[in-house]
Design a binder for these strands. Structure first.
Lengths: 231, 231, 231, 231
DNA sequence: GATGAATGAGGGTTCATTCAT
DNA sequence: AATGAATGAACCCTCATTCAT
């Protein structure tokens, strides 16, 4: 990643695996930007080559054809996004701050999920999944930002809170999914799949709504009934 | 609509649709099929013209250009879908069949929403909304199948059941939306936005899950059994 | 010409020759404007029809095809231009004002010849004469503005001045042509065939140059001052 | 230039023009011929490609678009024409052969200027100058055949003859231009801008006329009146 | 005579892909 | 491995022209 746009990597470390790895990275970067901006069909490999500063044939040497380049781009974006997902480990640890923490978690999640680039990538995948079967693995539950990392952490927190008697989620995975899906769905619908920016108050509304649903469904009623729990 | 695809209207009955309307309808049908099958960019107006049995220029006479034809197709599909949505008025009337009715309603809804054509149309809209601003009105909350008609009816039922003391939805619109969004989201994710068929058991699982969430959040616990909890 | 753009010539005088002569005129006007602005090939009959406020087929009914419409336009423009040429009969009558009158005549002529519309028409004819043989009669010596009317008058004046002993043009037709051709040629070259406007000083220069040439060649030197030369 | 149109450069000598230059030249040649024959709009790049023996896209790789190809063709034709202009240095050196030399020079000049290809190119430039501003530099005084080369030489000869007392051109540039413009104008008008061939007697007439005008205006009266001169 | 709808041909331009170096 | 040049197919769109009313 250091010298991705270098046109003349004259003296690269002899340990480099093959050829010019910088070129490959440059192509990936350019392709990602252009596929996201234009869509699969509208994206032109001429443009990608120009933006990457390489010859068009170099793209073919590295990736074979447009479709494989596209799949590579999507795969990398997906794994990269999950890798880059940052967890706020301070949330959902204090039972008394449950509602506030859910709201804050929701806001972080919605913001990440509506990031223009992330949204564009999601639309791109949805657009092309029917035409490129290899995209199936990148489409759906494991998609960026709601990826295994964050979801896994959330499931675990729900389980802990349930064990603590604060929540009553007999199936923490489903409870966590309910929260996330409510946030995601509303965010996508309201922002037209990320093409319209949402005002802060709209994001707050979405989060409040999802939190309300989640707490209605899973919070152990406080005060005198706590001891009995729902189950 | 009777004989729209007639290629040879040589001796047509005087009552038959002639000239304009017939051709226009034929073009819309062909365009719908091809846009849905191929996507916006991959769809060729030559193909549309051939399939509609008209000259390419006729398409331009009627719609101006490819983009406007596309928007017309999407608009028609959207309004048509909502118009054709059938309501099962027998559901959600009997408080004792609440769970069963939610499951049945869910199954109908998921089936409608995962219909291949409906799904393809949804993917198409998501794919192109960023490139054709006119699609914004067809994208999102009012989309086919979760259109105003069904959702409005559901909201009203939730309100009635709340008034009857069966549910406790102080905001029936949100409660209804929660049910629908859970069904939709899970259906989309699991079927990869409608590109993978779901087995009946998967649909059942989705419906059971959404129903469980809804009832957890909104069912008024039977008074004397509160202490025992559900299930 | 009164009501050429009338779309509804409801009550036209019963003496009108055929049909709707207003339509024909409207078509001619629109076609003239568009052919001149765009050139023959770039001009579209759709545009002409729209601008004339008639159906495209009406153009075909009146003129047969694009080429005949074009020829009609050019013919009309040519004869119209010659008809509209205005002569300044006060010029070239006073032998003592010979130089001044030539300058003034030149300025009038150059201005007329460089009129944007006239220039565009000339370019149009030159452009198309090789492709439409019927244009030969509109191309060349008889072209607008240097048309028979003005040239004939000039020839006659030169003859009279020669008879008066002021000029020595044994062939008045050639002498007149020399003056006109010098003005025309320089005007065309400098203005790039009428596509660049000429500054007044440039026009003056052209006229002074042509007048100088003409007088050098044709003025009878005042008898007793011959030895001194001009100027 | 030897083997520019070679379609199969399979085993060409190592010194032969390969790849780029050959194709480019072939395209230019074909384009020149077709633009001249058909005009800008009527010329089809398909035809050019076919005639040049290259793919259509190759034209785009080399020239970008039709307009730039056109401008390149015109530029090349213009510079090429001036480069190829041949001067007859034996003319206008002998004061006693002045009239004969002017007639001969005129004939050469008129013949060159009415060459079908040169004329067609001129019409093409005039036709398109309003639509392609880049043509301005190729339109007008510097146009082919009356280009700087010949005109410069003529001016110099007129200056020399004036110094010799044979002519009285205080402004040799203007005197030369007068001769040339008279020839050009008459040639263009009579031949309908080169679309009608002129009979030899017509060319002679034009030359005699221009020579007569030039000598009337600029010859120092011979014999006993020479000393007095016009100036 | 006038219209609106329809046609078939064709044009410029762009694309993904390959060949020769 | 990398390049520049070249390809052939396709696409959107426009045009002059005709048919049916």
């Amino acid at each position: 990643m250091a010298s991705t746009t270098t046109t003349e990597p004259a003296t690269l470390p002899s340990g480099a695996p093959r050829g010019l790895p910088g070129k490959r990275t440059a192509i990936m970067r350019a392709a990602t930007r252009i596929f996201i901006a234009a869509g699969y069909e509208r994206a032109s490999l001429d443009t990608v080559a120009a933006e990457a500063g390489v010859s068009k044939q170099t793209i073919y040497n590295h990736f074979g054809d447009k479709e494989r380049l596209f799949v590579a781009v999507v795969d990398e974006a997906r794994t990269g996004a999950d890798r880059d997902t940052e967890l706020d480990e301070t949330l959902l640890v204090d039972p008394d701050a449950l509602e506030q923490d859910l709201l804050r978690l929701g806001r972080q999640f919605v913001a990440a999920t509506l990031d223009p680039e992330v949204s564009a990538l999601r639309r791109l995948i949805i657009a092309e999944v029917a035409h490129h079967p290899q995209l199936h693995r990148s489409c759906g539950a494991d998609e960026p930002q709601s990826g295994p990392k964050l979801l896994g952490w959330l499931i675990q927190r729900v389980a802990v809170l349930t064990a603590q008697g604060v929540l009553s989620a007999d199936r923490p995975d489903r409870a966590a999914a309910h929260f996330v899906s409510q946030l995601t769905y509303e965010g996508q619908q309201r922002s037209k799949y990320g093409t319209l920016p949402l005002a802060p108050w709209e994001i707050d509304e979405i989060c409040a709504d999802a939190t309300d649903l989640f707490l209605r469904a899973y919070r152990v009623p406080p005060a005198h009934t706590r001891a009995k729990g729902r189950r």
